[in-house]
Amino acid sequence: MKFNDAVWGGLLVLLAGTILVHVQGFPPIPGQKVGPGLFPGTIAVGLGVCGLLLIANGARARLARKDGTQWQWLWLPPWLKSGRHLAAFLVLVAINVFYLLAAGKLGFIITGFIYLLAFMWVLRVRLPRAIVIALVMTLVIHYMFYKLLRVPLPWGVLTPWAW
């Protein structure tokens, strides 16, 4: 998906404005001119300037178009019209959100298995093979990070059977 420069410019200006308003609430350091708001404020000004220039770019591109072609806000990529690819994209986003929300409660092994299984579906792996790969990979990753690298992966509902 490609947006017109002006769209991005507008978003940047909006973001910059929000930050500028927000940093006014940051407390100053007593006795100093420089507080925690200075740096984000400066960045926001930079972002705002970039945003304005992008809007100007978009407008200039519109003026340069004399043949009467339509002004486009965004260009849709062809994959948005293909149900399979759109579903694949949505599943990909969904499983990441799912991991974020569920990993703590369900534990790494269950969440990771579901995650990988869904990912295999996206990649069109046949189901029996997908189940085996997802199971083995989850256990291998768990062993590598939990046992060897000592990353405290959550056990969740499997806590009573933790090994």
Partner: peptide
């Protein structure tokens, strides 16, 4: 121009957290 905008966006992401001299939680 877009490179510049990304640079500022990156700097903004780096602002998140307590890592400033006043240890004030930003964003």
């Amino acid at each position: 121009l877009k490179g510049m905008a990304s640079l500022f966006a990156g700097l903004l992401i780096a602002c998140v957290g307590l890592g400033n001299p006043a240890a004030f939680p930003r964003f």
